[in-house]
């Protein structure tokens, strides 16, 4: 679940659209823009953009991720990477699937809390980050390190 591709092209920054400017979205937006990428952040609420740092070099668009119009305004069809990071699972899934299937974006990553649907949406070529599973793995690792007697 790391993102090595994002730093791969040295000569030219990528065009990245991020849906959801919460803690994760704004943090990633700040980091990606500092790496020389052209970043567009989309959120329904204008106040959300206040969490972008002063150093953020990019664009902000107020809009609903479930409206095709918003995706068009953000020029998703030209994006190298789309990140769907709103607080709502289904919104992220829909935005990610449309970006992948309809706009044919090369890399699409969605955050989904419910681990149930991961297989199904991975079939579309969307990469899923599941905080629930990550936490489970992390705890397993930690426990394994401490106790180590699984069998």
């Amino acid at each position: 679940m790391t993102m090595p591709v994002l730093n791969k092209k040295k000569s030219k920054g990528l065009y990245i659209v991020i849906f959801g400017c919460g803690r994760l979205g704004s943090g990633i937006a700040n980091w990606l823009s500092s790496k020389g990428n052209s970043v567009v952040v989309v959120d329904r609420r204008e106040e959300a953009f206040s969490s972008l740092s002063f150093e953020f070099t990019g664009f902000t668009i107020i809009g609903d991720a479930t409206e095709l119009d918003t995706l068009e305004t953000a020029k998703v069809e030209k994006a190298d990477v789309v990140l769907a990071l709103t607080p709502d699972d289904n919104t992220n899934i829909m935005t990610a699937l449309i970006s992948k299937e309809y706009f044919e974006v090369p890399r699409v990553i969605a955050r989904v809390y419910d681990p149930n649907n991961i297989d199904m949406f991975s079939e579309f070529g969307v990469e899923i980050i599941c905080p629930t599973l990550l936490a489970v793995k992390e705890i397993q690792n930690t426990l394994g390190f401490i106790g180590g007697d699984e069998g």
């Binding site: 030219k12 990528l14 065009y15 052209s38 567009v40 664009f59 668009i61 030209k78 994006a79």
Partner: peptide
Amino acid sequence: TKPFTPTEII
């Protein structure tokens, strides 16, 4: 038009 991609600028 904004937002623009690096490719568009170059």
